[in-house]
Design a protein around this nucleic acid. Structure first.
Lengths: 248, 248
DNA sequence: ATTAGTTATGGTGTAAATAACCAAAACATC
DNA sequence: GATGTTTTGGTTATTTACACCATAACTAAT
């Protein structure tokens, strides 16, 4: 390797051709239907080429002066009306040839996707169906083949969801202000599947951690003994940041 | 919000101006000097504007036809000769105004950084100093103010390093083929600091996990009883993927 | 040769956490 | 009043984490 090649490649006189990028954000948006105990993913129908008439993750291209995070929130706001959610960056997919638009029509353009992961409260999420494009919640296991590499992104997002639920209090971002331990457990079971902890041990662990504040109120829903209503105490959680909520 | 605004924004007729991006990769490259028990970060001296004469993380702009990962490996290969390493994508920093080149000279250009995180074997890492640009290992605690938002990226990288060391076998990517339990422990202490486990308990835990293969050989280095040499058994580790190596 | 120092090894024991399991309380419904 | 359902609040055995210690096997100094 010659010394010339050791020049920093962003040098203005660099001889190698740089790629020009359009940057998109694609969101893996999860929601938990606590009525039917289903983990749902939001998908939208594409009506433009490439991949016209394919389902895809909701996404958009980043505009001038717009941050990546802002673009991610905008995509979300364009598809659903909800203000109870958690959102974070996931991973950036940027290999050449991941988007058919890259070549040969426009040889010099690359499409890069900064994927984000979101969890929204199902009850509050009102889908915006504008009559033109299809939009739907799909149970995770029944998601069809998606456009681009979106199935891969989805797999990545699901892994992150499981991990976040295990180590972070994101459940409380989408649960109601007050909730029962049963509500909380159902959410965990729906996402993680059974076999991480039975209800009794789950209760004992969460209560011992000490960030669930008993409101003193009770709720009676159908048969069975009334359940205590709890509230998430963010301040009490703070020192427990590193502790796992559950063990898979 | 009008129905018009609900058009997917990557529609060819979209009225909003999209940003055009140059995409760079910036690498947080760590190494552990086991002689002096120091955690080191690789920084390079910039000689172009902006931030000329500032230290920075080694980076480059992505070329045509080059994947993000390939660009990250290229940066690394341009700075050091080493083939024992671990590398993965870290996070994508892409807000407007993170790079002074964005405005006002070229209003329409955005610079996005897909940061990567690497851990390399210190003994094998031969720095490529071509006489023009400075390059140096800095102890983590003594890293100066860096160009752009690189200090923030470094902080992010260090968090990932700690996490990886806790849950993944990346230590064995940079340890010699055979090593003593003392070598392994020193690596962990240097990165994580003291107070995660004493040597005796660390030994007991790692040996019990069962993926350290005793070679039967011994090594005597200076004073003290000779130590057994172990080898990492990737196959035996496989089922233990989710288990933590240590507890901080 | 003896002694001191150093590092590796292989243990204690106690406290805590995990996991499986169980019984009673408090409701609704029949 | 009996039955079923869900919450609550346990018990117990097993495993793990954590602090601590004793000896083995070497080097280096006296």
């Amino acid at each position: 390797m010659s010394a010339k090649l050791h020049r920093t490649s962003d040098h203005p006189l660099s001889p190698v051709p740089l790629a020009d990028f359009k940057v998109g954000v694609d969101n893996v948006i999860f929601s938990v239907d606590t009525q039917q105990n289903r983990l749902l993913v939001l998908v939208v129908m594409r009506h433009d080429e490439p991949f016209a008439d394919y389902w895809s993750l909701p996404g958009t291209l980043v505009r001038q002066g717009e941050s990546l995070e802002a673009a991610a929130y905008r995509v979300l706001a364009e598809k659903i009306r909800v203000n109870t959610l958690y959102l974070e960056q996931l991973y950036t997919f940027g290999g050449p040839d991941r988007d058919p638009r890259e070549s040969p029509q426009a040889f010099n353009v690359r499409y890069l996707s900064v994927s984000h992961f979101a969890l929204v409260r199902f009850e509050d999420a009102e889908l915006i169906a504008d009559g033109v494009s299809g939009i739907a919640w799909y149970p995770l296991a029944q998601v069809p083949q998606l456009a681009f590499d979106h199935n891969e992104i989805l797999t990545y997002g699901y892994r992150r969801l499981r991990n976040k639920l295990e180590y972070s209090p994101i459940a409380f971002d989408v649960l109601p202000e007050v909730f029962t331990l049963g509500d909380l457990y159902q959410l965990y079971v729906t996402v993680l599947g059974e076999g991480f902890s039975d209800y009794s041990n789950f209760r004992a662990r969460l209560l011992k951690l000490g960030f669930l504040q008993d409101t003193g109120q009770k709720t009676s829903r159908g048969a069975g003994r009334p359940a205590s209503l709890y509230r998430f105490d963010a301040a009490a959680f703070e020192p427990l940041k590193e502790k796992a909520m559950v063990f898979i």
